[in-house]
Design a protein around this nucleic acid. Structure first.
Lengths: 337, 337
DNA sequence: GTTAGCACTCACCGTGCCTAAGTGCTAAGT
DNA sequence: ACTTAGCACTTAGGCACGGTGAGTGCTAAC
């Protein structure tokens, strides 16, 4: 009972099961793959694989299907990342090259990835990183209503309308802006709060109340908000492959809508040597996502923001991993350009 | 065979069917509602209602279920909009009062509505309306990279990073900003393009190339983009009520992800006298949405932006209509405040 | 270590049967 | 002119039954 053939059998089981959705038996296996042995031998191998917990038989007398552990071994040791077809490469290029601003790029990317993989795609907005304050703008919209705009040196703009406790003159507001900009220009966003707490010179005492309100808002804007958001696409693919999921798909949809859950999930993905991270079935740390696997990778200058797909455990890992990796690379290139 | 009792029978059928999911028969009807007649009489009424196309029997011998036409009559003539429970009113108030900026308000609103109705909620960003240019900002990020910011007097900010054809000095960029702001300040967004085409005075000939690039971008930003976007929540509710939908729910999820489709759908909803718009089953103008109904209404100062829910034809219309209307009112109040 | 053969298990499918719910219709009652 | 009781009729859905086929484990021979 050779070690290598047993792995070969596991690979064959995974591949057949992934594309037929049905438990695969020893006889079917020798027919479809030309392993040079008979079905009885395969049966022995299968018994050994089952012993190791790599495959299971759903019913006493039916073919075997891979366990999470089986998929894990397949992904780690057996499979190669498939190269994309040239048609796919072209699709990526043409779609992403036509993109406009950041929102547009993100939207196109996530849709593209869901189409390539026939799965749900998720993407996290890129991090602000070590961005610094570049500009501050206050716009008086109404007597006590001010639009506060914070522009970072990486091109990110955060804005919000707030109310002041009392009326303020346009000129006073301009003075406040000058004073605050003087204090904050070039300061990393992460240090805005500390810097403001240390005091803002050159502000008339009469404007103290307004200063406090505006400062509080600047602190608020300097905490990454939009960046902590994810986009998704292709939820229809979930519904299309019902039956791949043990229970209903509604808890999955709920988790997907819960940004916080997805953000934590993505942040827990550690890239492996091949540049992708795969969590399979029970490895996914949320009960509501049982029966699903996640394939993700980082993108952008420091690969800190994540992009990936979520699908049934029974998924074509090599192809999916290839698609995720390729899309992330194109995306990084575009963002760098 | 009195006219009023027939309508009463229709109402009873709709109400029973909506909350039991099962075809309702004549006997069950007389038991649950105290209509003062026997089941045989109800059978005659039912036959008449079926003749009019208001109800149908799925199988030769089973209870009746309402047709789209039946629901329509129910919504138009029989049902009253239910008042919300005080718990619901409180939920709306506490949730929306804690909201921050516009994005946050929208997000909370759409989640709230989906929870109240147990349906998929959709909301369209408010229109810019007759907003005018209030401010323009150019920020030099790199030798040829400029962040263009356009601020409208209603507080909306649009921004984008663009590349210039050649290097530009900080001072020259400031001059360009002054010139463009002089030309555009107070101009309605819809007329930005025409105004720029008429010429911008006070720009050195050397900056002509840069002026052209920047102007083009301002035109681009002045066309509403973000406003033409919708948010949704509660897709898990779709999956939970499988069986209410004739086919799969995946075409529905596809349509929901297709912003363009949803925008057109919402824009086609005409408010009726009661301030809500209802499209039932086949009245919804998209094949992929067969078996669904949409309940929507307008919100904001001119009620031009829409908010609503999408669910199975078999839906509790009175309650849903009440929830949609209530949420839209609170939302309008918050945006106005 | 591999193979052939064999007895065994069980999901799946079609069949037939029965029941419960519901209907339409007719004839009698108000 | 309605309403009602009664009755014959229809049919979805549940249940038992048996046959089939794919697949297994095991044993004995190669």
């Amino acid at each position: 009972m050779s070690e290598v053939r047993r792995l070969e059998v596991l690979r064959a089981i995974v591949e057949d099961y992934v594309h037929s959705r049905e438990p695969v038996g020893s006889k079917a296996l020798v027919e479809r793959h030309h392993l040079g042995v008979s079905s009885a031998t395969i049966r022995n191998d299968m018994a050994a694989l089952e012993e190791e917990g790599l495959i299971v038989a759903p019913h006493t007398s039916s073919g075997r299907i891979p366990t999470d552990k089986g998929y894990r071994l397949f992904v780690d040791r057996i499979s190669d990342v498939k190269p994309l077809s040239s048609a796919e490469r072209r699709a990526i290029q043409t779609l992403l090259d036509g993109a406009g601003d950041l929102d547009d790029v993100m939207d196109r990317t996530v849709r593209l990835l869901s189409q390539l993989t026939n799965q749900v795609a998720v993407i996290q907005y890129p991090h602000l990183g070590r961005a610094k304050v570049r500009h501050i703008e206050f716009v008086l919209l109404a007597p006590r209503q001010v639009l506060v705009v914070l522009i970072a040196d990486n091109g990110k703009v955060e804005q919000r309308v707030i109310r002041l406790p009392e009326d303020i003159a346009e000129a006073d507001l301009a003075d406040l802006r000058t004073a605050l900009l003087g204090t904050l220009a070039g300061v990393p966003l992460t240090e805005v709060e500390a810097k403001l707490a240390a005091g803002v010179p050159g502000v008339a005492a009469a404007q103290d109340e307004a200063l406090r309100t505006l400062s509080a808002e600047l602190v608020h804007l300097s905490v990454p908000t939009r960046e902590e958001r994810i986009l998704m696409a292709g939820t229809a693919n979930l519904a299309r492959s019902t039956g791949d999921f043990p229970l209903s798909i509604s808890p999955i949809l709920e988790a997907l809508e819960e940004q916080v859950v997805m953000l934590r999930l993505l942040s827990e993905m550690q890239l492996d040597a091949r540049g992708v991270s795969v969590k399979i079935g029970s490895e996914v740390p949320y009960n509501s996502l049982s029966g699903t696997s996640v394939v993700a990778t980082g993108y952008g200058p420091d690969a800190s923001a994540k992009v990936g797909v979520l699908g049934p455990t029974r998924m074509d890992y090599p192809t999916t991993m290839a698609a995720v990796r390729a899309v992330a690379r194109y995306l990084s290139r575009i963002l760098a350009g």
